[in-house]
């Protein structure tokens, strides 16, 4: 039975739901799944992780207590735990944290690493990932003595597979080689991250100003969506770069992507083409996005979005009253 390590991510004290897709990607009848948690929450999430098929929960801490966030000491702790347990395959999310930790681990181990995998075969050591701004899908073989993979958030569907889980504490020495995390500044835009959201509503040139993004935030608040933007809107400084979807911004795969006033350049598609459903609202029926989406509405977004927000608010309100949701 091969042991597979999974780097679990916690956000604001909760298990990110995209973790479950990574667990699904790692699961196989002949694999034993080891979840790595580094913030001292291993015992707390035991039943959640067991429900998705994790057999061993490795609760990593330092000899001085819980590990404070530091990408160097976290990476070294994970490597020590992998070596201690005889694990040579590690999966994680291609998230901000995954992009910090997985390459560091791969570099220290001199192991092959493929980020943003959309399909995986752990026996053959092959994965699929998009390249060239999403224009091609490459099948890649990793050769080495250990293997590290970053999974694209939402690329795999979560699949429950209840089992018994055991929590194993693992202590490592506190180490950091020169790099000090002085502070973490929380951003102005609180709420759901683009890579985590089931629904994203994005604005482009058609938004015309920074203030107008308010109508997208109002929609997002009602339905629990994240707000994104095209490069044009970011370059015009209407919204911060952290909201940019596309080639030089975030790559996202929500269930629904609603593009408002976005023409749909190749570079924008690079960041959102693997979305479940793409909906476009644009006044121009010839805009590129209307040729490559699932549904489009040729109309003024300033008219459509507020109506959509109001109608969804009514539905959500009814559901809450009748207790169906």
């Amino acid at each position: 039975m091969e042991k597979i390590g999974i780097l679990i991510e916690i956000k604001d004290g909760e298990l990110k739901k995209t973790n479950f897709g990574v667990i699904a990607a790692a699961r196989d009848d002949c694999h034993e799944l080891y979840a790595f948690l580094l913030d001292g929450s291993g015992a707390e999430f035991k039943s959640h992780l067991a429900y998705y098929g994790v057999q061993k929960i490795i609760d990593i801490s330092s000899t001085e207590g819980p590990l404070e966030w530091n990408p160097v000491s976290w990476s070294i702790a994970i490597i020590h735990a992998m070596e201690h347990l005889g694990i040579n395959t590690l999966l994680g999310l291609t998230s901000s944290q995954g992009k910090e930790l997985l390459p560091r681990i791969a570099a220290y181990l001199d192991a092959p690493l493929v980020m943003d995998c959309t399909d995986i075969n752990l026996t053959e050591h092959t994965v699929n990932k998009s390249q060239f701004s999403g224009k091609t899908i490459a099948t890649i073989k990793a050769n080495g003595l250990s293997y590290i993979y970053g999974i694209r958030p939402n690329a795999f569907e979560e699949k429950p597979a209840p089992c018994e889980a055991e929590v194993i504490p693992y202590q490592t020495g506190p180490e950091s080689e020169g790099l000090i995390v002085k502070e973490i500044k929380q951003g102005a835009s609180k709420g759901i991250d683009l890579s985590e959201a089931d629904i994203i509503i994005s604005g482009g040139r058609g938004m015309k100003s920074s203030e107008n993004f308010r109508i997208l935030f109002e929609f997002a608040d009602v339905i629990g969506a994240a707000v994104g933007a095209s490069r044009v809107a970011v370059d015009a400084e209407w919204v911060p770069y952290s909201m940019q979807v596309g080639q030089t911004g975030a790559t996202v795969s929500p269930k629904v992507y609603i593009a408002c006033g976005i023409s749909g350049s190749v570079q924008h598609f690079a960041g959102m083409k693997t979305s479940g459903l793409i909906v476009a609202v644009n006044t121009d029926p010839e805009a590129n996005i209307t040729k490559n989406c699932d549904y489009y509405i040729v109309s003024d977004l300033f008219e459509i979005v507020p109506i959509l927000t109001r109608q969804i608010k009514e539905i959500v309100g009814e559901d809450q009253l009748t207790g169906t949701k």
Partner: peptide
């Protein structure tokens, strides 16, 4: 360790674009 590209395929884009 190494990474080997076995195959490249164009990404399929089939969306029906209904208005």
């Amino acid at each position: 360790s190494s990474i080997e590209i076995l195959e490249l395929k164009p990404a399929v884009e089939e969306r029906s674009s209904k208005e």
